[in-house]
Structure formats: structure tokens, C-alpha cells
Amino acid sequence: SPPLAPPGLMVPALVLEFVRCEQDELLVQSKISAHLAHLKQEQNSRSTPDNQEQNTRHAAKPERLTTFGLMCHMADQTLFSIVEWARSCIFFKELKVGDQMKLLHNCWSELLVLDYIARQLQHGKEDSVLLITGQEVELASLLAQAGVTLSGMIQMGQELVHHLQEFQLDRRETACLKHLILFNPDVKLLENQPHVESVYEQVNEALLEYTLCVYPQFPDRFNQILLRLPELRVLSAQAEDYLCYKHLSGEVPSNNLLIEMLHAKRT
């Protein structure tokens, strides 16, 4: 947990509000685990010869669940929880649905990557990664199964985790980063652009104030944190390209939020 603010100094109210908005990790974990278990069960029942009739009924969704497919379902479900999180944010609520969609279309992959990175930060092990379902996967086994592109992204992710571990990014700072990513003032054609710009500025100020208050011995901490955002953006862009490529080769499960987001940005 993050260190306490020195006596007499206050954690900015906005930062506390962001932490309040954070989702219950165990609840998200159990929801997603249950969803994936259901998918696997469905698949098993379909592959049993006794269930011929059921096979026919499910004929419209003849997806074979590969490890990659399972990961896509996991990312898809994580996206659902990201949308829920955004909806719980007071500043997000003030926007019309059209603007909300534009913001999410712009940043969904960055939020997914940050979610992954933040989980690895908490996990704190260099030789394994922690999935949103709570499963721990050996890094070596993951890299052995992945192709060149995916391996490169996993390694880039590990480097980013390592950077952030070096100065122990805390949960409050992570919560601020999520908001900086969501309220990106560079998103064009918003109905309420001034609101998004104002929220972005407020989050920046709150994060700066927070780092100076809680980590006064590291005056450059705020800049160091912000420097990681372009790296995160590069990684998320790579992940999108990779997903797009996999989608075109028919390896991404269809009819889900992940695909919808992928399409929205490309059209």
C-alpha cells in the first residue's frame, strides 16, 4: 500500500476520489473466472459426441478455444470491467454517451495494457505473470508458446513493469494514470472538449501535488511517471496491430467488445 502522507499534509481529494472508484479486484477476478469457466464448459459439452443435438444448436459459434482465444476472451472481459470503471467516474458521467464512446475508443488498449502492467507490479515476480483470473503463468512458458511479435511485446511489458517497480509506482498514482489516459485532451471532435481538457489538467495537478506531498525526497517523480505514458502508448499500439493481424487471420473470437473496439478505431 502507498505510504502515508507526512503529518500535516493532505492527499489531494481528487486522488482519494479516484481510489474510491477503483474496482474490487477480487470481484472482477471472480466474475471473469466464472465467465471463462462457463466458456470452457460450453466447449467441452460441445465436443462430447453424446451432445450431437447441442452441437447443432451451437452451430453458429463453432469456435475452438485456443490459448490465444482464451486470452482474447480474458481481454474482452477486462474491457467490460474497464467500461464499468469509467462509468463510475464522476467526470465521465458528466459527458454524453457520444463523447464517452470517443474517449474509450481512443484509449481502450492503453487501459488494457495499464491494467496488465499494474497487476504485474502488484505481483512483483520477474519470472511469472499474473492473469486477471488470478492464475500465475511462468514467463518462460509464455515466451516459449508466443511467436516473435508477441514475445517482443511481453518483454517490452516486463521492461515497463521493471521501470515502474524501480520507483514503486503506488496504487493512487496508478489510479491517476488511468484518468490521464481516459481523459486524453488530444481526442478530436468531442462535443465537450473543454470538460475533457479541464479534467486532464485537474488530474495532472492532483498527481503532481500527490507526488510532492508523499514523496518529497523525489521532486522529479511526477515527470518520471509521465515519461512512462509514451512507452505504454507504443506497447498498446503494437498490441492493437497484433490483434488486428490475428483478427484478419480468423484467430480472434468474434462478436465481442474487443473486436468492436478494434473496428471502431480502424474505421
Binding site: V97, M101, L257, E260, H263
Partner: peptide
Amino acid sequence: KKKDNALLRYLLDKDDNV
């Protein structure tokens, strides 16, 4: 394009009138 965004729109719209 609108059809592409149907799920996200639904997720953002739901419960709004409650």
C-alpha cells in the same frame, strides 16, 4: 459504423434512465 459500436453504446446507455 453505428452498428459496429452497438455493444459499447448499450453498455454506456444502460441504466441511464433509472
